[in-house]
Every structure is written in structure tokens, then in C-alpha cells.
């Protein structure tokens, strides 16, 4: 019995992991192709740029540039080269910045992750108590208020919220929500103080980001809890003489957490999309604005690397949440 169980858990992990690998592969192909779609390539826009500034390159040097970047090769070859590099963490050179893409991304990654993780934690941390409250006191004023507010949170797109927040922050608090470092930390190297300073300034952007996801999680959690609270095993626990709150926390909440955890996987892509657009509105130096610039300047290595990394983040996050789910719910392992 034990052995059988752990084998099926092993199978499950294997299965989910292989799906994720396929997904990341597909994402890499899509990222690569998208970047190749625009007519012309980086070199031509680079040359256009140069000719504007008067520094016109000769035809030979243009051809040389093309060869250097492998642009004369067929698409498949270029993809394989790029993918082989990507696996080693080498994403080529950013032509706009004239720097290694990997180094550039590493620099922006910290704040990107900080925003996304903070957003996720806020969404979770707030959704749990609110969902619990709404379910235990369903039909109360608080429940109605949270639910209506949640609907709006779900409906209004992130970037509009960010825009409103930007306006309100500026108008009434004379604060720039996009400034995530206090003046004394702006040019300082990373330190514990700078980290917490950034975390503090990130709070409002992360809240904006968290609102929609939190509202969605509250809805899911409330519905699941209500479902679970009417189940016979809850009555059994009550019949044992358990205190109501202890009981709700141990049984329904525990079971309602399963769909909750599985929703987390689904929300990760949304979270990453959201963090991109929120940081673009508020002008926070994350991968979002970097991607926008790269796309606008046809900086293809940079853009495709960012696309790939963002997708990979989402896929790996989803994988982790699925594995977490299979760990907390013994039934899942048996089903697959």
C-alpha cells in the first residue's frame, strides 16, 4: 500500500514535470518566432538609427554584423543556436544596451520577483481571512461589502487601477508611486536597508497587482468553504464536541485550500502579466518596461529572453503549486 502510494506520487511528479518541460519548449519557440516576425531585423533598424545620426556603416560592415548575429542562417538553425545558449544561461547580446542579455536581465530580475512575490503574498494573505469571514458570516454586511468590492477588483483592469492610483498619489499625497527607492538609496548598492526600503515602496504597486487576484481567490475560497461547511464530515466533527472556529479551521478550510492552491497555479501567469503592466504604468524598473523598450527597438535577443523567462517563471510556479496540491491532497495522486 505504502509503496504503491509513493510510486503513484512519483508518477504524478514525473508527468507534471514533463508537461512543464514541453510547455517551456513551446514557449521558447513562440518567444523566438514572435521576435522574428517583424519585417527587417535588428541590424536594419540599427543601421537606420546609425544613418540618422550620420554614422553610416558600409555595406560590408552591415553584412559582417549580420553574420556575427547569425542572421544569414535559416530560422531553425538560429533557433537551435539560441536555445542551446539559453539553456546555458547565455541569451546573447542586447544591441540596444550593448551588454550581455543575461546580465541585464539579472539586474532587473530582483525587483520583478519582488513585485510578483509581494503581490502573490498580499493576495493570499488577504484572501484567506476575507474568504473565511465571508463564508462564516455569509449574508452579513461585511460579506456583501467585500463581495461587491471584489467584483470591482476583478473587473477593473490592473493598468486602470494603477493609473487611478498614480493620479490619486500625485494629486493628494504628492507622491510618485513609481519611485521605489528613497532618495538616499537611489544610487546605493543593494543592502538590507535598501531591500526593505524597496519592499516598503513596493507595497502600493503590489496591492494594485494583488487586488484582482485576491478578489478572485476570495470568491473561490468563499464558495468552496460554503460547499465544505455543509458536508457530513463537518457535522461529524461538530458531534465530537469541537469548537466552531477550531472546526472550521481544521476541516472545511483545510479542504477548501485544495481548489485554492490549484487556483494559484492559474493565477501565476496573470500575476506576471499584471506585474508587467503595473510596473509599466508606474514606471518601476522591472522586466516590464525593459521588455517594452526591447520590443519597440526590435532588440530581439533581449525581448525573446524576457518573454522566455517570464513564461518559464509562470510555468515553474504552476508546477510547484500542482506538486504542493498533490502533497496536501492525498486523493489527487490516486486520480492521475
Amino acid at each position: 500500500m505504502r509503496a504503491g502510494k509513493s510510486r503513484s506520487l512519483g508518477n504524478f511528479i514525473l508527468y507534471r514535470t514533463s508537461i512543464s518541460v514541453v510547455t517551456i519548449f513551446a514557449a521558447s519557440v513562440i518567444s523566438f518566432i514572435i521576435i522574428q516576425l517583424p519585417p527587417g531585423d535588428f541590424v536594419s533598424s540599427y543601421v537606420a538609427q546609425l544613418s540618422q545620426t550620420g554614422a553610416i556603416g558600409s555595406t560590408e560592415s552591415i553584412e559582417q554584423l549580420r553574420r556575427d548575429y547569425g542572421l544569414d542562417q535559416p530560422m531553425v538553425v538560429r533557433y537551435l543556436r539560441w536555445a542551446a545558449g539559453a539553456i546555458r544561461g547565455d541569451f546573447g547580446m542586447s544591441l540596444q544596451w550593448n551588454r550581455e542579455v543575461s546580465g541585464l536581465i539579472g539586474e532587473y530580475m530582483g525587483l520583478t520577483l519582488m513585485l510578483a512575490v509581494l503581490g502573490l503574498l498580499l493576495a493570499w494573505g488577504l484572501a484567506l481571512p476575507i474568504g473565511l469571514y465571508n463564508a462564516m458570516y455569509r449574508g452579513s454586511m461585511g460579506d456583501y461589502a467585500f463581495s461587491a468590492f471584489g467584483m470591482i477588483g476583478i473587473a477593473v483592469p490592473n493598468f486602470l487601477l494603477a493609473l487611478f492610483a498614480l493620479f490619486i498619489g500625485f494629486r493628494y499625497f504628492n507622491a510618485d508611486l513609481g519611485a521605489i527607492h528613497s532618495p538616499r538609496y537611489v544610487d546605493a548598492p543593494w543592502s538590507v536597508g535598501r531591500f526593505f526600503d524597496a519592499l516598503w515602496h513596493m507595497l502600493v504597486p503590489a496591492l494594485i497587482l494583488a487586488l484582482a487576484i485576491m478578489s478572485r481567490l476570495v470568491r473561490v475560497l468563499r464558495a468552496n468553504l460554503l460547499d465544505e461547511m455543509s458536508r457530513p464530515y463537518v457535522v461529524t466533527a461538530r458531534a465530537k464536541g469541537m469548537r466552531e472556529l477550531t472546526l472550521v479551521l481544521k476541516y472545511p478550510l483545510r479542504l477548501a485550500l485544495n481548489p485554492f492552491v490549484s487556483t494559484i497555479g492559474l493565477t501565476l501567469p496573470t500575476l506576471i502579466s499584471g506585474s508587467i503592466i503595473v510596473s509599466m504604468v508606474l514606471n518601476i524598473p522591472t522586466l516590464g518596461p525593459l521588455l517594452l523598450q526591447a520590443l519597440q527597438g526590435q532588440d530581439m535577443f533581449l525581448a525573446s529572453a524576457i518573454l522566455l523567462i517570464l513564461s518559464t517563471l509562470a510555468v515553474v510556479g504552476t508546477l510547484l503549486s500542482d506538486l504542493l496540491l498533490s502533497w496536501i491532497d492525498p486523493r489527487i495522486r490516486l486520480e492521475s
Binding site: P232, V235, T236, A239, Y251, D329, P330
Partner: peptide
Amino acid sequence: GGDIGFIFQEPMTSFSPV
């Protein structure tokens, strides 16, 4: 649960599955 014990009709759903 102390003075009075209770047995339910559906033993399957009357235990928490997790």
C-alpha cells in the same frame, strides 16, 4: 461526543477525506 455519541448514515462522507 462525551455523554452522547453519534453515528451517521454515510460513513464515507462522514470522515474527512484528507
